[in-house]
Design a protein around this nucleic acid. Structure first.
Lengths: 221, 221
DNA sequence: ATTGGCGAATTTGTAATACAAGTTTTAGAA
DNA sequence: TTCTAAAACTTGTATTACAAATTCGCCAAT
């Protein structure tokens, strides 16, 4: 593969491979064609192909194993912003204090701004929580409801912050999902009712009560 | 360079180079030793050295130029969390609504938890704001005060979120620093007084008033 | 002395070949 | 059928060679 005027041969092979990974031609866990195959297919030398693959491994997109081949890595774990990395072990009270501030006000705003579509999705979330089989299912629907409230607040900043914190919230429930059970559904119903009736104060206080209950369940096992 | 039991030769060369970059042995813009030099120094073949350098370029740590050499890249541009990138152009009202929720409650918590050291730093921030020459100085001290309140809230989550949002707040004041002036100092004084006297309600309402005023100054030029 | 150009030395980019080392597959024997 | 060992395949490393781009120094001409 001779040099192109615009980019090096290595660049071209790298583009070919990274594009293939990004587009799903090769999915996580898949084995890339062997270096010899790529040489034949792309008309490049092994040096060029290996250089491109090294770049892939540098980016964490693939991993080579001597004797086996080169495999596509699973997508990077949910990227937690550097500034929030220190929160991985933040004390639970601080996290719940934060949630109480944000989510109670989100519920109040949702009481003003929620659309009928928002309400419908919240209802479905509650139904899904009631009919959830495993603890994981219930926890997922639980989190989904809170996310819907954040969205219904009509404030994009609140929603984005919620999504950033989501992984930290989830992590906090690890090994505690069984403690929650379905007691939260009743709280969710009350919150939704307040939102439907446009009752800001009640929505806010119900969310506060709900998070207080959840905190007690988590922090005092 | 024969294989080690623990890692490949490429890994070792890569570690050597990336460590050198991280530790500042080679600073941004510096030229790394030529491939030939590295081969001699490390006793590795050029294939191995080039493979390691390819990984560096994949990570964006270095850039190779034919005929010139390989140069250390400047550190990555200020990392704005992916989830928050969409907020760069978020409507200002949403941002201020969010700030009002978080910072009013932060002020209330600070009224309970602020230490004498916190209060001292807040006083210094206010003095620095009054004596600030340029608009930029004033704006910087203004932001510093709000950051101190977040810290004095005693909630690590609140502080971290503030730091994440900081760049977005600052960006919002670009081209508007002159509109603020020093009217904020009076508000800051009132907030600090409420914190000093442990008056949660007043601290909260003063912060709300302050952010309302700021929003009016920014959004209605 | 300064400037100009030209060629040599450096340096990275690509290729071809060879072998080492690890894994998988396959063929054959028990 | 099952187990074993050889063959085939695959990545890791080394060596050599040349191409292409840049830098440097030397030398000549002005």
């Amino acid at each position: 593969m001779p040099r192109s005027d615009l980019s090096s041969a290595t660049d071209q092979v790298f583009d070919y491979l990274s594009r293939g990974i990004a587009s799903g031609t090769w999915k996580p866990g898949d084995k890339l064609p062997s270096e010899a195959q790529l040489c034949r297919q792309l008309g490049a030398s092994r040096v060029t192909v290996r250089s491109a693959i090294s770049r892939l491994t540098g980016l964490g997109l693939a991993r080579s194993q001597q004797g086996r081949g080169t495999f596509v890595c699973p997508p990077a774990p949910p990227p937690v912003p550097d500034d929030l990395l220190g929160l991985q072990n933040a004390d639970r009270l601080s996290v719940f204090e934060f949630r109480k501030i944000i989510e109670s006000e989100s519920a109040a705003l949702a009481a003003i701004r929620a659309t009928s579509a928002d309400v419908l999705e919240m209802e479905q979330s509650i139904l899904g929580m009631e009919s959830g089989k495993s603890d994981e299912d219930v926890a997922e629907q639980d989190m989904a409801f809170h996310c819907l409230v954040a969205r219904a607040s009509g404030n994009e900043v609140i929603l984005r912050i919620f999504q950033v914190m989501r992984s930290i919230y989830i992590q906090m429930f690890e090994d505690n999902v069984s403690l929650l059970g379905k007691t939260g559904t009743e709280h969710h119903r009350r919150i939704l009712l307040a939102i439907q009736t446009r009752d800001m104060q009640t929505a806010r206080s119900c969310m506060l009560d709900h998070l207080d209950d959840t905190m007690r369940a988590i922090c005092r096992p």
